[in-house]
Design a protein around this nucleic acid. Structure first.
Length: 201
DNA sequence: GAGTAGATCCTCT
DNA sequence: GAGGATCTACTCA
């Protein structure tokens, strides 16, 4: 299992990167405690031309500044006052592409994830949905801007065979008010995986 | 099992 | 002052 190189994140095609992120492993290691999960669902946000993106039309504020930073950074922000959403920043500096990680399949540290989620038994809701997986992996806004190749938080490839992914594609979730952009087929997921959020298609 | 409402607070207008 | 890249519990069937 090895960390993804920066060149993985620095490419132009955010949709391509999003599909390739499926099957990769997101790992956090806070205070020596490792938790990890395989990425089974994500959504691409296509920078300034995507109305659903925080950076639509070049908006640049203190909150979304990280979207304009170097590829391979983590963009974490709070939604609805409660949920911490974890994004991967891609493309070159000053091009605000990002990919929202929406669901994981738990791998390591399941007991710790259960404790963080205040659950007693593993079910397929543990890391389903962007707010839930952030809690399970211990991610919060304090991690905004850190590198995805740091010792505490990184994305790795364990050789998951891409041909077996069986990738599904649909419109994004929770962006109904974004007009035309709400219809873009920018959500990608692994078909049949029980940890994918929303209704399976 | 499906549908709905409430939680809760930071950010930008 | 409004609204948001959501989750959960509760109702009803």
């Amino acid at each position: 299992m090895k960390k993804l190189p920066l060149s993985f994140y620095q490419r132009d095609d955010v949709l391509q990167i999003a599909t390739e992120l499926l099957g990769k492993i997101l790992v956090t290691k806070w205070k020596g405690i490792i938790t990890s999960g395989r990425i089974v669902e994500c959504e691409a946000y296509d920078g300034v031309i995507d109305r659903a993106s925080h950076a639509f039309a070049g908006r640049r504020t203190a909150r979304n500044e990280i979207m304009y930073a170097e590829a391979g950074s983590a963009y974490v922000y709070i939604c609805y006052g409660i949920h911490h959403l974890f994004n991967v920043v891609t493309n070159k500096k000053d091009i605000p592409h990002a990919i929202l990680i929406r669901a994981l399949e738990p791998l390591q540290g399941i007991n710790e994830m259960l404790r963080r989620r205040k659950k007693t038994q593993l079910d397929n809701l543990l890391t389903k949905g962007p707010g839930s997986l952030s809690v399970a992996l211990g991610i919060n806004v304090g991690h905004n801007g850190i590198s995805l190749r740091s010792p505490e938080l990184f994305i790795a490839d364990d050789g998951f065979i891409s041909e077996n992914k069986n990738i599904g594609c649909s419109s994004r979730i929770g962006v109904e008010s974004a007009g035309e952009a709400a219809k873009y087929p920018y959500r990608f997921y692994i078909r049949g995986n029980p940890y994918v959020s929303g209704s399976p298609k």
